[in-house]
Amino acid sequence: MPVSNGSATSFKVSLDEGLILECGTHIAPLDIAYCAYGTLSSARDNVILVCHALTGDQYVAETHPVTGKPGWWSRTVGPGKAIDTDRFYVICVNVLGGCLGSSGPKSLRESGELWGTDFPPVTIRDMVSAQSKLLDHLGIGRLFAAIGGSMGGMQVLQWVASFPERVGAAMPIATAPFHSAQNIAFNEVSRQAICGDPDWHGGRYWEKGIVPAKGLAVARMMAHITYLSEEALTQKFGRRTRRDTVSSPAGATTGNSLFGEIFEVESYLRHQGSSFVRRFDANSYLTITRALDYFDLSADYDGDLSAPFRGCSTRFCIISFTSDWLFPTSQSRLLARALNKAGVNVSFVEIESDRGHDAFLLDEPDLERTMRGFINGAAEQAGLGGHNAS
């Protein structure tokens, strides 16, 4: 079994038994790519699973191999940080349906061809089931904690609903127990942008040696607006303009600037779109956004959100942000009330922030203090040594 010695290590395993998805399709073998940080204790009781968001990946705390940028949560995961790799063995898995090593549309099927648009629909529950198979493969029976934001928070919730006996503590951040109609609508606009790209070719764009760059970039631009608050956009860009020297994500100038200038926020969004195209697969984007849309923890319980958590001994800390309009605090309160109704040990923290949904990825001192406090308390309850008070 691969075990990190304290530095980041990337792995990929292929499980011959595969996984039967909720839709009934059997994916075999099942490929799972992940990164691990820290050292696994002899009792295997210090494991924290970090679950990534929609456009994240397993490179949570190390230089990304495609972009060359720091890991998406490197400010939070590492030695002496809120998720302390000096104390815990931290695992982050590329989700099922992703495009950086785990089984997904870019994977080869038995015929030797890429799955592409033929890759079956997956759910958040399928993603969690794949992660549980990885833990089985690694000989890890129980998680000290599962932590994640946005879609990662949905995975945390599904972990407890599916495997309550395997999760000691859970921290869902900036998330919800189901995807709202508004969020589904945003995702559909993004999907239509991709499918409407002339280079889409029915989802078999790789056969032409191209990608639907324009559509995928617009999808990213659309999503990125929802990650920020109006106040954050105003503070960062206002109505400032700059010379129109920036190309559109597909490489052609837009040709509609006034007096040779564009707004700085336009330039920012173009940059977000063009950089995203270089690291993410369009078919994976469609697959994962669909999984988000169909997520609803109460769907199998006649709308009773407390039902999946009855009898659960997992300790919860739910975190939301005041300016998050993508996953507003009202949805976190709904979840907290359901957990209380189920008799679960739950704390809820709403953090004042003007940064919108992306606040969980940024430097937010109150978030760090909350995470440290919860993790230390859960570790003390679990009888794990050490204390991270910095």
Rank of each mutant, 00 (worst) to 15 (best):
G255D: 04
E266C: 04
R369T: 06
S248I: 00
G251N: 00
E266L: 03
D324N: 13
V349A: 12
V346K: 05
A338N: 08
F276N: 02
S247P: 00
G377Q: 15
L258E: 13
V277D: 00
S330N: 12
L269A: 10
E266M: 04
D281Y: 02
V265K: 02
A378S: 15
I319S: 13
G255Y: 09
T289M: 02
G311H: 12
A282L: 04
S332C: 14
S353W: 02
G377I: 08
A342E: 07
L292S: 01
S284A: 13
A282M: 04
E350P: 14
R279C: 01
D300W: 06
F348H: 15
Y268Q: 09
L326Q: 11
G343W: 05
H271F: 11
D324T: 12
S332V: 09
S313W: 07
D304H: 06
L269K: 07
E350Q: 14
G373A: 08
R372E: 04
I375L: 14
D296T: 02
V265T: 11
F321K: 09
D296K: 02
L334A: 10
G356H: 07
A336W: 12
V344P: 00
V349C: 09
R337A: 14
N345L: 03
E380T: 15
T322P: 05
M371E: 10
V346W: 02
Y268I: 07
L305V: 06
E380C: 12
E261C: 03
D358L: 03
P308F: 13
S248D: 07
S284V: 05
F374M: 12
Y268G: 10
R279N: 00
T314E: 04
T254M: 05
V265S: 06
T287Y: 01
L362E: 14
R315M: 10
D358K: 01
K341N: 14
G343T: 07
Y301P: 01
D324Q: 08
S320T: 15
T287H: 00
Q272H: 09
S306M: 04
S298W: 03
T329M: 00
Y285M: 01
S247V: 04
S347I: 09
G377E: 14
E368P: 01
P365T: 09
I351R: 06
F360I: 05
L297F: 08
